[in-house]
């Protein structure tokens, strides 16, 4: 663990919508307790929630690692899912590969990645088809 910071690791359970969002909820409550500005808390919570849901929908779960340092909130979302073939296309608002039954639940509107970009200060995606995806999000404090 780094000094002057907080470190969190979460296993994100795949195929379980009921518990999806618990990791981002924990981070949100932590940030509130730390007294960060409401807008920063909300941006972080939404960006992370979208990432968490993506792993549930597309990758059968994964891991979320969060570091809160004096200057930023850094989130790493990693899965061993199908990967993203065309990242640029996937980033477009409204583009979705979510199956119909997921959309019926109100998810999979194709806003996940674009919202993650919109609400974070830095975003990096590394993905390899049939290997998995790694998303890094940074929200400056």
């Amino acid at each position: 663990m780094q000094s002057d910071g907080l470190h969190f690791e979460f296993a994100v359970d795949g195929e379980n919508f009921a518990s999806a969002g618990t990791a981002s909820e924990t981070i949100k409550n932590t940030l509130k307790k730390l007294g960060l500005p409401p807008a920063t808390v909300r941006r972080t919570a939404i960006a992370m929630y979208e990432g968490e849901i993506n792993m549930v929908i597309h990758a059968g779960g994964g891991t979320a690692v969060v570091d809160i340092t004096p200057t930023a909130i850094e989130i790493e979302l990693k899965d061993e899912g199908p990967g993203i073939a065309d990242i640029e296309l996937a980033m477009r608002e409204g583009y979705s590969t979510a199956p119909e039954e997921i959309r019926m639940l109100g998810f999979g509107a194709g806003m996940g990645l674009s919202n993650m970009k919109k609400y974070s200060d830095e975003m990096k995606i590394e993905s390899e088809v049939s290997k998995g995806t790694r998303v890094l999000l940074k929200i400056n404090i």
Partner: peptide, 18 residues
């Protein structure tokens, strides 16, 4: 109401959370 925050100073709050 800010009573739920651990400390006014972010660095102190971070230490307390840790």
């Amino acid at each position: 109401n800010d009573v739920l925050r651990l400390d006014e100073d972010f660095m102190v709050a971070l230490k307390k959370m840790s």
